[in-house]
Design a protein around this nucleic acid. Structure first.
Lengths: 143, 143
DNA sequence: TATTGTTATACTCTATAACTATA
DNA sequence: TATAGTTATAGAGTATAACAATA
């Protein structure tokens, strides 16, 4: 995408959105070799941490709508990375498991992702990274 | 959109993206009475500050592709808020002007936007807002 | 009645390529 | 040859509503 050299002259919200676009773009690029979307890679991580886990729980972690979680899981299942099985405790529900290749990919992708985050946010002083994390958490949870 | 009570347990990039979605959602909601998108409201602001201005310059300020700027300006022109005229200095190019109603809307929208930003980021201590701005600028401009 | 996950639908943002008119 | 802006096209992300099965 072409980037003009114009200066940025606007509000904090617009600045935030522009940086967010950079973050997303890097994330998409890192995942490109595996053909995963950011949501898919995050969902894979949630499944790895909470397996077996219901789609609604995954949606909660990712802060996305149940509708979106369905698409994300369809994609992951189509790639053979997760499996949906009936939930023995609630016949309306399902539980999601990693497959063997899903578990392997999770490690690979996680490594690449960590490297890229270290590169992008690593340019910041350590205190700034800590401040950013703290401030973002406050903004995520306030009313 | 339903929000599950699950805790956030992940990397800075994912946290960033989730907050970005909140920022975007608020922005969309604020603009809803006027039927403008975030890009359209930003473009309106750029036109107001730099009028007459070429589409490519607007794209540069918004950090979007020329292709996207075309859509944004199509929308604004369809609402009667801006006008495209031939650029007397370069017959390939155009210059964008505000219409009278565009100028009026710019003030209204700008006020609503400022109020909402004050509400969202206003929960942060003043030092945190300053830190956030500084850190985001660093992240926007690094390599 | 409420909840789980689905199907259906639509709009926006983003990205790439190719085209035109002009420089 | 390069540039300004356009048309054309496609893929994600996001959002709402409605539905079936089950609690």
């Amino acid at each position: 995408m072409p980037r003009a050299p114009e200066p940025a002259d606007d509000d904090l919200g617009a600045l935030f959105m522009r940086v967010a676009r950079r973050v997303r773009r890097r994330w998409v690029d890192v995942l490109e070799p595996w053909g995963l979307s950011p949501h898919q890679s995050r969902a894979l991580g949630v499944v790895g941490q909470h397996e077996p886990v219901r789609p609604g729980v995954i949606a909660g972690h990712l802060r996305i709508a149940p509708r979106s979680a369905t698409d994300v899981l369809d994609g992951l299942e189509g790639l053979g990375l997760v499996e949906r099985r009936p939930d023995p405790e609630d016949r309306r529900a399902q539980v999601v498991h990693l497959t063997t290749s899903g578990r392997r990919l999770l490690d690979e992708v996680g490594g690449a992702r960590r490297d890229d985050l270290a590169e992008f946010f690593g340019h910041l002083p350590v205190e700034d990274r800590a401040s950013l994390t703290r401030i973002l958490r406050a903004l995520e949870d306030d009313d």
